[in-house]
């Protein structure tokens, strides 16, 4: 389809969001995440296109927002303009675990500090959204960084260009095929 060429304007993501990346999370090769930061500082966490779930033609068995016995991201509730009551997340806070039909388990992390506003419940009933529209309807969670940290939260993240370089290098080396 050549629709995109006819469009002549950037996509919704490119119009309003900046793409940031974190690669090889917790040292696990290719488990890359993408952080879409809106100009109003809100961040949407998604799988990066290089993530094994998207690269290796996996099927999804189960998505679990219950990250420990005492903590489920599905319990998260925010109220008011100031989003009181939302769970506060640090960079390595797990958001959910995704199990593929081949028995592999992948943990998706927050990647940034901030208040959890919502998780995407639609992917529980329609896991294929994660595979078909990973950067829009298949998003994982929405996080609101603190106002004063809205600049610093992306300091440890890769830009789109840096990310592409990492992916390109991987393709050139046979050690870490993704």
């Amino acid at each position: 389809m050549d629709g995109a060429e006819h469009k002549g304007v950037p996509s919704v993501i490119d119009r309003y969001f900046t793409r940031w990346y974190k690669t090889d999370l917790k040292g696990k090769p290719c488990e890359d995440h993408c952080i879409l930061q809106h100009s109003n500082r809100i961040c949407v966490i998604t799988l990066a296109e290089s993530h094994p779930i998207l690269q290796e033609d996996k099927k999804i068995q189960r998505i679990n927002y219950q990250i420990s016995a005492g903590c489920s991201r599905l319990q998260n509730k925010v109220s008011g303009k100031s989003k009181r009551g939302g769970q506060f997340l640090t960079e390595l806070a797990p958001l959910c675990r995704i199990t593929s039909t081949d028995g592999e388990e992948y943990t998706i992390f927050s990647c940034i500090r901030g208040r959890l506003l919502e998780v995407n419940e639609d992917i529980l009933s329609r896991p294929n959204l994660l595979l078909e529209k990973p950067s829009t309807e298949g998003y994982i969670a929405v996080i609101l960084p603190k106002f004063e940290e809205s600049k610093s939260i992306t300091e440890g993240l890769l830009t789109r260009a840096e990310y592409e370089e990492v992916v390109l290098k991987r393709a050139g080396s046979n050690l870490q095929p993704c």
Binding site: H6, N40, I42, V78
Partner: peptide
């Protein structure tokens, strides 16, 4: 909407679209 979520409470609101009228412009518009 995400674009106003930083300054408004998170909620689901029911709205009604009474009518829509489409006029073809070209293949993709």
């Amino acid at each position: 909407p995400l674009r106003v979520l930083h300054r408004r409470p998170l909620a689901v609101r029911q709205r009604v679209i009474h009518t829509m009228t489409a006029r073809f412009l070209d293949t993709h518009h």
